[in-house]
Design a protein around this nucleic acid. Structure first.
Length: 424
RNA sequence: GGAGACUUGUCCGAGUGGUUGAAGGAGCACGCCUGGAAAGUGUGUAUACGGGAAACUGUAUCGAGGGUUCGAAUCCCUCAGUCUCCGCCA
């Protein structure tokens, strides 16, 4: 959530930046400013009247202490009158406060200065590429065929147990998942991230904190009996670890990593985009999250990008890093880098990670703050990234390394998988 | 699932209707003391939203939300959470 004070001070700048993010309804900004002024007016009125009530009440106490009952009774009437006049003010103040909040949550985060303008994924800028696209053997097939050949993921049975998009990993397929998770977590903890295993369901306040609510509730699975949401990413529970906390400045940066399954409803997709492991309702992911000093967040973003890049390099997959344009970025992000790996048999790029700086957008909602050197309260900045989402990594590993009767695995995975290749 | 206890500031902990934003302690900051440090000692130390050039000042906040009252951390109701005992259970 943007800070009202900032909007008030820089309305034109805010509008300009929102336009980069393809946010059309700029009247929201004016409405926020108007409601904020209205709120201040009412607040002042409420405070002055309440102040009179408080003073009178104190005096009544003193009078009664002195046994001057009659005078006390007179003053009570006075207070009653004040309170009657206070009622509509307080109601109005509440309404205006809610309206202001309602408008405020409509505004996405402002994109950073160097976010490219543009609406579509094609407007994203390729920052760099790495790894070489493999030359596949004759008769190479996409991963959904390999999965069947090797008997490692069973979509039909998963669909029977739950529904489509809920893969059932089996045998070496299940072990490959476990190997990847373990490797990713080890890689992250070696870089100083603290490992967490968080709850997989969150309450409303947590979903609101990271920006999933109020806007995108349709993307999450919801359990009405208990008012819980299944997490779409570990980002939600992990970032919320510090919700409503005032941390010590020297505790920053806080680096956290977690493996969780992720649940996404993702209605409305079809065709080859969703074939096989390309897009599923439940998948495994290892996430990294940092809570940092505002002055450092862009340096940390770069550090996280490098971290994920090295991880991809270690998997020996061809990849590219994109700087997302304003129109393709998420609601809460100020700057995002997407990582895609090249799926050689499908001949397409698949997104496997998204690393973002949210600046104070999430921490403002969650009230994650620290006291700076001057003793001033400041919002921390939050960042997160995938390292990595598994299904598409698996798709690429399978497709790019297929060798007839087996699939070669990158060296880093051998100790985890207990073998150098996946065989029939 | 049943019964009970509890939820106060960064932390511990007092406080059952009237200057209580909240005693006391710890921690932290600054100063004194010291060759330096520890100990000792003095002072300060919540957040949000307002007003004010500033000094300063108003309002709210003692798990959350309602209520009673001129006045609530203190009384009542609802909800959430923590702990203990019993039951059940991987």
């Amino acid at each position: 959530m943007l800070q009202v004070a900032y909007i008030r001070q820089h309305p034109d700048l805010v509008k300009k930046r929102l336009a980069v993010k393809q946010f059309k309804d700029l009247s929201v900004v004016d409405e926020v400013i108007r409601l904020d002024e209205e709120r201040k007016r009412l607040q002042l009125e409420f405070d002055t009247t309440q102040s009179k009530v408080n003073t009178a009440s104190r005096e009544i106490g003193l009078l009664m202490g002195k046994g001057q009952q009659e005078e006390a009774a007179t003053r009570k009437l006075e207070v009653a009158a004040l309170k009657t006049s206070l009622q509509p003010i307080s109601e109005q103040l509440n309404i205006v406060g809610q309206q202001l909040q309602g408008e405020l949550v409509k505004l996405p985060n402002l994109p950073a200065q160097d976010v490219p303008a543009g609406k579509l994924p094609s407007d994203n800028i390729t920052v760099r590429e790495g790894g070489a696209k493999p030359v596949l053997p004759q008769g190479a097939v996409p991963h959904w065929d390999l999965i069947n050949q090797f008997g490692i993921v069973d979509f039909e049975t998963g669909a029977r147990i739950t529904g489509s998009g809920f893969p059932l990993y089996k045998g070496k397929g299940a072990k490959l998942q476990r190997s990847l998770i373990q490797y990713f977590l080890d890689y992250n903890t070696a870089a100083g991230y603290t490992e967490y295993l968080p709850p997989l369901m969150v309450n409303e306040a947590s979903a609101y904190g990271t920006g999933q609510l109020p806007d995108k509730e349709g993307q999450m699975y919801f359990m009405p009996a208990d008012n819980f949401y299944l997490i779409p990413t570990a980002e939600v529970p992990v970032t919320n670890i510090y919700r409503d906390e005032i941390v010590k400045e020297e505790e920053l940066p806080i680096k956290m990593t977690a493996y969780t399954p992720c649940f996404r409803r993702e209605a409305g997709s079809f065709g080859k985009d969703v074939r096989g492991l390309n897009r599923v309702h439940q998948f495994d992911k290892v996430e990294i999250v940092q809570i940092v000093h505002p002055d450092k967040s862009y340096a940390v973003l770069e550090e996280m990008v490098n971290h994920v890049e090295s991880l991809l390099q270690s998997l020996e997959l061809p990849y590219r890093i994109l700087k997302l344009c304003g129109g393709d970025m998420s609601f809460a992000s100020a700057l995002t880098f997407d990582f895609e790996v090249y799926s050689a048999a499908q001949e397409r790029w698949l997104e496997v990670s998204s690393v973002s700086n949210f600046e104070s957008f999430q921490t403002n909602r969650m009230k994650i703050r620290f006291k700076d050197a001057n003793g001033k309260m400041q919002l921390a900045h939050s960042l997160n990234g995938s390292s990595l989402a598994l299904p598409r990594i698996v798709a690429c590993l399978l497709e790019n390394n297929q060798a007839g009767d087996h699939i070669d695995l990158p060296a880093v995975l051998h100790p985890y998988f207990g073998a150098g290749s996946l065989t029939l």
